[in-house]
């Protein structure tokens, strides 16, 4: 092994991969070039556009700003891991139904981001537009303004934002209903309250 490379292990979409990467390789390039998971997109390579958004240990992260060598041992969920077999994730289905995209290049990042948003919101995380941020206030309604704010790290040059907001609201409502049906409070305090 060359000294400027590292042997790492990544758990991606439920599968563990052992790979040797150049130390300069980003997590994004490891996914795209080494694992042939090209669903995660590269729009800027500088953390400016959100096209490379994945879930890293369950949280939103821009894969272009992570070195693969530093992600050794971590768990990554990419767009390819979001559907349940043939059944799309509610966010994927809502993007399809509401036309929450045009060229589709920002879309995997938007969808991963939206899935992260729904979780963060359910966990009670406030955003910059949340009026009452006291913990006891619980999560704010996931209304259009909250969605716009929380999704603003994902640029869409085609300008699909209006449908994206609708799709995320619709999917969030479904995820919340699913949680309730499962009898749980979801992963966070108070579950997800949604107003679209």
């Amino acid at each position: 092994m060359e000294t400027n490379s590292s042997a790492i292990s990544l758990r991606v979409n439920g599968e563990t991969h052992a790979l040797t990467v150049d130390n300069r390789t980003t997590l994004l390039d490891a996914l795209r070039e080494h694992l042939d998971l090209t669903g995660t997109k590269k729009g800027c390579d500088h953390g400016q556009c959100g096209a490379c958004t994945v879930l890293l240990d369950g949280r939103r992260a821009t894969a272009c700003l992570q070195l693969a060598a530093a992600a050794d041992g971590r768990t990554v969920t990419t767009i390819e891991g979001m559907a349940d077999g043939d059944r799309l994730h509610p966010v994927q289905q809502a993007f399809l139904d509401f036309d929450g995209y045009q060229c589709g290049y920002c879309t995997p990042g938007q969808i991963c981001s939206a899935i992260g948003v729904i979780e963060e919101h359910a966990a009670g995380w406030p955003s910059a537009v949340t009026a009452d941020v006291r913990p006891e206030a619980g999560p704010p309604p996931l209304d259009a303004d909250e969605i716009r704010e929380r999704m603003s790290g994902n640029l869409c040059r085609c300008g699909a934002y209006v449908s994206i907001v609708r799709a995320v609201a619709e999917a969030a409502a479904q995820v919340a209903a699913g949680r309730e049906a499962a009898g749980g409070q979801g992963s966070g305090a108070g579950g997800t309250r949604v107003t679209a």
């Binding site: 090209t38 669903g39 390819e80 799309l88 994927q92 399809l96 139904d97 589709g104």
Partner: peptide, 19 residues
């Protein structure tokens, strides 16, 4: 009509030129 390539785009299966 929803897009014919919609499923490929929302699952990450759609390959663009550099992919």
């Amino acid at each position: 009509r929803t897009r014919l390539e919609g499923r490929a785009k929302v699952t990450g299966a759609a390959r663009y030129a550099g992919e």
